[in-house]
Design a binder for these strands. Structure first.
Length: 254
DNA sequence: TGGTGCGTCGACGTAGTTTC
DNA sequence: GAAACTACGTCGACGCACCA
């Protein structure tokens, strides 16, 4: 049973979400919090939650601020529900590495499938090994800091400028490290190569953009950093198993 | 433990073709 | 004509051996 914290300021809409799906049947234990962001952080620090859901209906920017505060202290999965479809908000949410964003109108089927996806992530061996790594592996603070800097650079670059070319060489130069050394350290720490990490970040962002916006496929490709469409097509199909167009159709028919 | 050099191979860019 | 998709050559990331 996974413990979820549902945060919102609007009692009516938050209650509506609470009754939208059978949380217990899905394997979740739900705690609803209608308090201020400060008391949310207190509750978060006091109890051990598996993931967080933020009701964006009335929180809007406060919801994103809360998201930002949580990201500073934890990599816990975050699901945003009930906001509007403003691309800038979705972009900011992506920058904060939220796991999914379901804008209004939220329907139970969509919410359920998103919850099951996060549940899958939580139970995956990779997630567990990574979590354990973060908790138990004795990595020096310096190495840890370097890798965090690399990851932050990637996430910032992905959201700051269109078509920006992200290379490990450039990051290594900026941090005054050898490229090979950084590559090696990254794999040791993250259990995946720099390219695998970059690909994952790009594909997750592309999936969200295809699901939540009506951007053209070449626009999505550019937005996630692919100058050439062909490579985006190849990588997207390899990553998801279907091509971008089909993925959007399937996401739209859910 | 932190760092470098170098060979290999996959990622990416260029230049196309196909589909609607 | 625009968008979606493909083939192939070039270059950068990875992995390994090695050094301080």
């Amino acid at each position: 049973m996974y413990k979820i914290l549902l945060i919102g300021s609007n009692k009516h809409s938050t209650e509506a979400f609470r009754h939208m799906v059978d949380w217990n049947q899905l394997g979740f234990c739900l705690t609803v919090c209608l308090e201020t962001p400060n008391s949310v952080m207190e509750l978060f620090n006091k109890d051990r939650f598996s993931f967080i859901i933020i009701n964006m209906t009335d929180l809007k920017d406060k919801g994103l601020q809360l998201c930002e505060a949580l990201r500073k202290i934890s990599s816990i999965p975050i699901l945003l529900i009930g906001g509007n479809k403003d691309f800038q908000i979705i972009r900011k949410a992506l920058n904060l590495q939220v796991n999914d964003y379901i804008p209004d109108p939220v329907n139970p089927t969509e919410l359920k499938s998103s919850l099951l996806l996060i549940k899958e992530t939580l139970s995956s061996a990779h997630y567990k090994s990574n979590t354990l790594l973060h908790l138990a592996k004795p990595i020096s603070n310096q190495t840890s800091d370097i890798i965090e800097k690399v990851k932050n650079y990637v996430n910032r670059s992905l959201n700051e400028s269109l078509s920006k070319k992200i290379t490990l060489k450039e990051i290594a130069d900026q941090l005054n490290y050898n490229c090979s050394y950084l590559s090696h350290k990254f794999k040791c720490r993250e259990n995946m190569t720099f390219n695998e990490f970059l690909l994952k970040q790009r594909m997750e962002k592309a999936k969200l953009l295809l699901e939540k916006t009506d951007m053209k496929i070449y626009e999505v490709a550019q937005e996630v950093g692919y100058v050439e469409l062909d490579w985006f097509y190849k990588k997207f199909k390899t990553y998801t198993g279907v091509n971008a167009n089909k993925y959007r159709q399937l996401a739209g028919s859910k």
